[in-house]
Structure formats: structure tokens, C-alpha cells
Design a protein around this nucleic acid. Structure first.
Lengths: 245, 245
DNA sequence: CGACTTCTTGAGGAGACTCAAGGGTGGTGG
DNA sequence: CCACCACCCTTGAGTCTCCTCAAGAAGTCG
């Protein structure tokens, strides 16, 4: 798999990967699947949920409420592992959809199990990625639970800027974001209409512009102020991990 | 540590524990710490976050927003592992406080690392518990993001009923819940005042009563309807895990 | 070019928040 | 043992954010 360097980006944040590690990872990857925008990778409620590795494009994980409304849990960027939370469940908790043309590979749960025996180092890294995701969800929960519309949208924009700019080691000041206003609403827990008005407010205040699927950040300071989430730093000292492997 | 049977309840949900497994777990437990209600176990922002095992009592994990408001992430019951998400971070993302008199033991991260080498089975179970927690957070996010006050409070009450009744294998119809209305507000993303009014509505509608730190569920059907979250079932087929160990 | 999705704008209403004040309860110290 | 204090609960009135309903414009894809 040629894109393996890209694909392990998330894991590699927690340590250097050796030859053996890369081999472990490549072995898991099933043939690449290609899907068009709007296609569903797996449905909420499907039995025996699997994991997926996103090679290119954007996907979104979301849950349906009895009222018929959707809550988007997270958008995924290339290199992200999709569907991990489902491993603990009998039925898939979330729906995973392609937001753009995407390439994904399926990862069978048994490979993950095998990893714990054959390559504890990688297993521990997967564990750490899971903890990182938990913190991400905690931040989202705080944002959606306790802040207003301007703050939530600002938080979304700032967060995406950081995630997209991760490869370059600095936040992206302008980036492509293939989300409709309705989808932004699903992510932030607001109406598409209110998203529209809020985006206009942000633009009017000269903070940022989101138009034509493109985000441009004008005033990062004030954006960050509005967003109001702390800039998280990953743990640097992995001696406790390395002792083990 | 005499309470280890209790303490590992969460992990045991994913598989039987052998003698070796129990030994692995006991070895990690540092001396027991006892703290009074309101005492802080660790602060948001503290460097080198550790993990804790809750032996008795209730604790709460929460995050502070720039506005000064608090968002409660989760309340913990005996047997829960506290602070796991922080393992991936340089600074603790959340504050952990005692809601009642509690007993906790600290778990050094290096023991977790060691687990991945010496007892991959337990490591995998910790991994699964983490995924379960992610699903829990996803459900919370959907609840807070897209539903009204009645639904949120109903969801909280129903969820606690399930968690507390887990040992008895059926939801508890009446239980002790040491949360003030202000804390309920922090959990559900609403004002203490509005919590008060909403609780009265639930009582007036003959659905449930929350008074004097005691919850009594009168009409579980309608409570569940209001709560509106799916009843999650943990994965039963762990062949993919057992293959490894 | 036509059908569909997405975006935009307006008007009105509902739910949740703020501010304010009073009453209950439990714990502590004199 | 009682008085006090801190915390918690309760209720009312007014305000604001965000939602709903509605309709039209703009963009996109076949």
C-alpha cells in the first residue's frame, strides 16, 4: 500500500515507527475501496462493526436521533481511523458517510486483536489515539453544551484549521472544507439557517470567511478567543510506553 | 486490595478474568487514598496526568470554559477508571472531583505500558473499555446537541439507572444520586434554575421524581421515550480478541 | 435547460437564560 | 443545645438566543 506513510500519520504522532511496525500496519489493510460523495460506508445499527482506514477524502460519522435530527460526531481527514468505538459494540453506533470522493480500506477486528500479541507497541499507540479522541469528544461536548453559536462555529473552524495544518506543523490559514451549512449545523447542534446567519456575522466582524467550500481565517487571535478551547499538547514523555516495548 | 473484584467490574464486562489477570490488576494499585466530598483528585492543566481507580463513592470529571462555566463530562461510579484520556496528553484535560466521600488508588502510567507487554489480554480489554467510553461520549454529544431540556434530563436519569443497575443486570428503579441541581445543569448543559423547573415538570407528568438526592422512576417507558438513546449492547463475540491471547 | 440541492432573508414564536428575592436544610462553632 | 452561616432549592418576571415556517435566489449536476 503506497499511501501507508500518510495513513499512519495519526499513530506516528506518538512515536517513531520502525520497519516491523510498518509491516504490521500494511498487513492489516484490505483492498482499497473507492466511494463517491454521499455514499455510506457503514450504517448505524449494522451488526459486527468493523474498522476503516481513510486514505483520501473526507468522511463524517453521525448519529440519528428519534426526532429524525442528525448529530454529527466528527469529520475525518485522511489518515484517520474510522469506526474504532464500534469495536466494543454489538451494533455500529454511528453512520459513516463519504463527504467527498474517498478511498478507504477495511480493517478486520481480528487484526487489531492480533496486534496486541504481536506488536504491543503499535497496540499501545492505538490505545493512545483512542484517548486522544476521547479528549476531542470532551472538548466538543463542552463547546456544544455551554457556548453560543458564534463560539461553536469558531471552535469548529479553528479545530479544522489545526487538524488540516498538522502535516505542516502550523494551523492552515485557508483551507478546503466540503461541508454544507446543513452539515455544519449537524456538527455544532444548530439549524442550517442559524449557521448561515452566524457565518455572516463572523464575516462581518472580519474574523473569517466560509464560502464556496473554502474557509479563510482573517483574524486568528479573535477566532481563537471565540473558540475558547485550550490548545492541547500530546504527551511527549512516552517512557512509560517504551519501557514496555 | 480486597475490593479488586468490585474494581474490575468494568473490565470484566469484556471477558472472564483469570488468576493471572487479577494479579496483573492488583499489582498496579497503589495505596488507597480517601477524600471527602468536594475534594479535588486532580486539576485540569496538571502536568503528567495519571490514572485512578475508583473503589467507592462517586466522582465527577469536568472541564472549565473561558466564560467560567463548567461542563461536566461524566460522573464515575465505583469500578470506573478515571483519567484515562489524559494519558495521551501533556496536561490533564479535565478536573476530577469527589462528589461523595471516596476511595481511590492511583495507577502509574508505566503500569499500563507494562500491561501491553505482559498481559495483552487485559490491555485489549482496557482498549475496549476506552471504545465503550467513546460511544458514551458520542451519545452524550447527540443528547446535548440536539435535544431539549426534558430529553436531556430524562437521558441522564435513564443512563444512571442503567449504570447503577448493572451489577443486578437490570436498571435500578430507585437510586441514590448525590448531585445538586447545579451539577445536573453542568452535566446537561443547562442552568440550575432550568434544571429545577424541568425536574418539576417530570414529576408533574408522573415520569420520575428526583428529590433529596434520590431518584425514583415511576414510568420507565415514557422516561426511555424521552431519553431517546438506543440501548447499547456490548460486543459479545470476542473471538478476534481471544485469538490474540 | 430543467431539476435538485444549497444558500439567503424575513417575521414570529418558543425555550432557555438572567436577574432577583425568599425559603429550606445541614453543618459548625459558641 | 441553639444560633448562625453556607449552600441548595424554589419561584417570578423580563429578555435574548435560537428555532420554525415560508419563500425566493443562487448554484450544481445531469
Amino acid at each position: 500500500m503506497a499511501s501507508s506513510e500518510l495513513a499512519v500519520a495519526r499513530i506516528a504522532a506518538f512515536g517513531e515507527l520502525g520497519v516491523k511496525d510498518l509491516a504490521s500496519l500494511e498487513q492489516m489493510a484490505a483492498p482499497v475501496r473507492q466511494l463517491g460523495r454521499g455514499k455510506t460506508i457503514r450504517h448505524e445499527g449494522d451488526p459486527e462493526p468493523k474498522m476503516y482506514l481513510l486514505l483520501s477524502g473526507w468522511t463524517e460519522s453521525s448519529m440519528l436521533l428519534p426526532s429524525g435530527e442528525r448529530q454529527s460526531i466528527k469529520v475525518h481527514l485522511p489518515g484517520d481511523l474510522l469506526g474504532m468505538p464500534g469495536l466494543a459494540m454489538r451494533y455500529a453506533p454511528d453512520t459513516i458517510r463519504a463527504l467527498t470522493e474517498v478511498q478507504v480500506t477495511t480493517i478486520e477486528p481480528r487484526y487489531i486483536g492480533g496486534l496486541f500479541k504481536t506488536n504491543p507497541r503499535i497496540a499501545a499507540m492505538l490505545f493512545l489515539v483512542s484517548q486522544e479522541e476521547r479528549v476531542f469528544l470532551m472538548d466538543r461536548l463542552a463547546s456544544v453544551g455551554r457556548t453560543g453559536s458564534l463560539n461553536r462555529i469558531a471552535a469548529l473552524i479553528a479545530q479544522l484549521s489545526i487538524r488540516i495544518g498538522r502535516q505542516d506543523r502550523k494551523p492552515a490559514d485557508s483551507y478546503f472544507a466540503p461541508l454544507t451549512q446543513s452539515q455544519i449545523g449537524d456538527m455544532t447542534g444548530m439549524t442550517a439557517i442559524h449557521v448561515n446567519r452566524t457565518l455572516h456575522k463572523l464575516e462581518l466582524a472580519n474574523i473569517c470567511i466560509w464560502r464556496n467550500r473554502t474557509v479563510t481565517i482573517i483574524d486568528r487571535i479573535r477566532l481563537q478567543e471565540l473558540a475558547g478551547f485550550p490548545s492541547r499538547e500530546l504527551a511527549v514523555d512516552h517512557s512509560w510506553l517504551c519501557d514496555a516495548c
